[in-house]
């Protein structure tokens, strides 16, 4: 019997205003590291991280988008393939919070209808510069029926928890595959890619 490197492939997407820390959040999750220098993401980038949930190896392909307006035509074309979207704002930047509704509209317009959404208020280590109260983040998340975490890529707060929770939420919606099916069609729709054994 063939051993598998992963059971499922989930595609996640990070969106939000420029400078809120999307790349840092991802870098903390994928490499467990943090870099203070700000380098604006050009267009789109991705990272891979395999996690284990409920006995399943899940490969996360996480797309990191540029927040700058000028890249939007490029980044929005990546919404469609995403099974989970993390919308990030910066608790020290009121504008990034105000723009949440704009980003949610973008999701409605460009992403799959059943995409799993999550709201992150990043930089929660900088409480002295906070302008968005935690309650406001919780409120807007409640209004839209999505999960919410305050995170800090720098202080490593809630980063792994957020990604694992999002992956779990996607896993919960994922139809259970027949374990004995010999020919798993990995190009099938529904977004979830799984396989058991396949000859090369």
């Amino acid at each position: 019997m063939a051993k598998k490197t992963y059971d499922l492939l989930f595609k996640l997407l990070l969106i939000g205003d420029s400078g809120v820390g999307k790349t840092c959040v991802l870098f903390r999750f994928s490499d467990d590291a943090f870099n203070t220098t700000f380098i604006s993401t050009i267009g789109i980038d991705f990272k891979i991280k395999t996690v284990e949930l409920q006995g399943k190896k899940i490969k996360l392909q996480i797309w990191d988008t540029a927040g700058q307006e000028r890249f939007h035509t490029i980044t929005t074309s990546y919404y469609r393939g995403a099974m989970g979207i993390m919308l990030v704002y910066d608790i020290t930047n009121g504008k990034s919070f105000e723009n949440i509704s704009k980003w949610l509209r973008n999701i409605d317009e460009h992403a799959n209808e059943d995409v799993e959404r999550m709201l992150l208020g990043n930089k929660c280590d900088m409480d002295d510069k906070r302008v968005v109260p935690k309650g406001k983040g919780e409120q807007i998340a409640r209004e839209h029926g999505i999960r919410f975490f305050e995170t800090s890529a720098k202080a490593n707060i809630n980063i792994e928890k957020a990604f694992l929770t999002l992956a779990e939420d996607i896993l919960r919606k994922t139809p259970v595959k027949e374990p004995n099916s010999e020919n798993v069609d990995i190009s099938s729709g529904g977004g979830v890619t799984g396989w058991k054994s396949k000859c090369c």
């Binding site: 019997m1 063939a2 051993k3 598998k4 490197t5 492939l9 990995i186 190009s187 890619t193 396989w195 054994s197 396949k198 000859c199 090369c200």
Partner: peptide, 19 residues
């Protein structure tokens, strides 16, 4: 999908060799 197929194929091979 093509990319996934390729990755998967290679990985399957990798682990087949193991057994």
């Amino acid at each position: 999908n093509k990319e996934e197929k390729t990755i998967i194929k290679k990985l399957v091979c990798c682990f087949r060799e193991q057994h």
